[in-house]
């Protein structure tokens, strides 16, 4: 018999983990939803964000929350660079992305992921590193919650809700939304499609790299060149669960995944909990291709 306390604790930790997953996947969601391109090297940019936080901690004494801001700013530049080297040739002047272009971006970003993760081994060595930052715990009844994870959870929710407000309430946000629905409509609202698409990509990278920094709070030792191999597929599943382009979908998908993984562990071995979480993607794609909530 599994103790109720364990399940409750798993539920709570699962929700916090889910929020971190959500922010890590959110950048992918934005790019996928707007530009209709899936960046296979998404995990490697999370890795880059995590290493950013690590080095800022080692050399500047920054805590991961502060590093997330710096990473986010760097992500803008990385995103623009990525857009113009990988996507621009395929998207420029098109009314909608063709299946052929989709394949080109899929394969080229796959090459990028191989390139980046293995270059990282040479640059950072293959050692696992972590950031020594723990602001303590807070007691909540019979549970003790790590404060660091709690801050990250709050920030994650904040980032995602800000992006919703941004897309709904600002002129640029509206232009991005218009682009995601119909590229020609972007021109009707008086915006340059390339500018809009590259901005959306840059914002997506900014969130991805900031997410990488926030993730380091959850994985005290897991920063390493191949970490993307876990967080990229998790992000793919989250975005599909939530529905690509639905900003709140990241949160929904993340929470679902986090809770499934942690609560299932009370009943089955961890490996199987992850297997179930990964395979959730298949029925969703079959029966609800637009995400679990319409």
């Amino acid at each position: 018999m599994v103790a109720l306390a364990v399940i409750l604790s798993d539920l709570l930790f699962g929700m916090m983990l889910g929020c971190v997953f959500a922010v890590v996947a959110h950048g992918l969601n934005l790019i996928w939803g707007v530009v209709k391109v899936v960046n296979i090297a998404h995990g490697e940019f999370i890795m880059l964000g995590a290493y950013g936080a690590y080095f800022l901690n080692v050399f500047g004494g920054f805590n991961p929350l502060l590093s997330a801001v710096v990473d986010g700013a760097l992500g803008i530049f990385v995103g623009y660079a990525f857009y113009f080297s990988f996507l621009h040739r395929e998207l420029r002047g098109k009314e909608r992305i063709t299946l052929r272009s989709e394949m080109v971006t899929l394969v080229s970003t796959f090459g990028l992921s191989l390139f980046m993760s293995n270059l990282a081994v040479v640059a950072f060595t293959g050692d696992f590193v972590g950031i020594n930052w723990s602001p303590g715990t807070v007691a909540l009844g019979f549970l003790e919650l790590p404060l660091g994870a709690l801050y990250v959870t709050i920030l994650a929710v904040l980032i995602i809700s800000t992006s919703v407000v941004f897309l709904d309430r600002t002129y640029i946000g509206n232009a991005i939304k218009a682009y995601s629905q119909d590229i020609t409509a972007t021109q009707l609202v008086g915006a340059n499609p390339t500018k809009v698409a590259s901005l959306a990509t840059a914002l997506g990278f900014s969130i991805t790299m900031a997410g990488g920094a926030l993730l380091t709070v959850w994985i005290p030792t897991g920063i390493n060149p191949y970490m993307g191999a876990l967080y990229a597929p998790i992000s793919f599943v989250i975005v599909v669960l939530g529905g690509p382009g639905k900003m709140l979908g990241s949160l929904l998908g993340g929470l679902t995944l986090g809770v499934v993984i942690d609560v299932l562990q009370a009943f089955v071995p961890v490996s199987l909990a992850y297997a179930v979480a990964f395979l959730l993607l298949i029925p969703v794609l079959l029966f609800r291709p637009e995400g679990i909530v319409k």
Partner: peptide, 13 residues
């Protein structure tokens, strides 16, 4: 793998 990755990027694009 660095070289292979780079080659794949160049060839795909």
């Amino acid at each position: 793998l660095i070289i292979i990755g780079f080659a794949v990027v160049v060839i795909a694009l």
